[in-house]
Amino acid sequence: MRPLPHRLRTLAATVVTSLALLGGGPSRAEELVTALSADVVSIQSNFTGTEIVVFGQIGVDVKTVPRPGRYDLIVKVEGPAQQITTRRKGRFLGVWVNRDYETFVEVPSFYSLASTARVGELGDRELLDAHGLGLNHLNLAISGHSDVPLSERDDFRQAFLRLRADQGLYSERPESIEFLTNTMFRTTIPLPANIPIGKYSVQGYLIQDGVMLARTEQELAVAKSGFEQVTFNLAQNHPAVYGLLAVILAGITGWLAGLIFRKD
């Protein structure tokens, strides 16, 4: 992230301007403003993962009496929804086979939560559940037809979260938000190489003593570009042409190799 300092300056300017505009806004005492280091993450052939910087400022009205206690911040990044089946193997006639399964519908394909404190210290369960703050508070809805007994449902849920975390797609990073001044903050969200493409949502939450004071939401697009995009689009939109191209490519490669290595 070499161009960062310049970007940060631009972002700081944006934040200050936004704050000025917010001056005459609603009567809420605290405001939260966030900005991203990039609106688009483009995936090219050299893509091995990247990171985005979320930058923000807490704005406190001059007339407001400063509240005692500290502010807590959360930055949550969620990827486009997926439907995921979690399967569990069991022995059947001496062989390990997939037996029970649970399908989670509309779960985020990517989930990253950065916060100033541990999730449990940020607020009560009701608040965390309502906004899906923390892996244990994610709403993992299951599809109607499930044969898994109620007592084992949590095993599937925990296994799902663990496997996604192993893939680097789900993470919870407490105390990863850095304060630059008393009110300005910054956090870096790593995006691994296996992130799915689509529209991501970046949400900022300002909490104090378990009370949600303000929140922001921004969109982040993850898209393929250049050759990656052309190839992907061809495969999706003209599959027959793509398939024939693959066969022709294979034929030419095989023929060329034969030509090059021909001895006689």
């Binding site: 997926q82 089946t85 062989v95 296994a159 493409i197």
Partner: peptide, 21 residues
């Protein structure tokens, strides 16, 4: 061997729909 030995992880996940399916 894979079929007979107890797997290291009994659970597995598969994307059935949505992004990246």
């Amino acid at each position: 061997v894979d079929l007979l030995l107890t797997p290291e992880d009994l659970y597995s996940i598969a994307i059935m729909g949505g992004a990246g399916a």
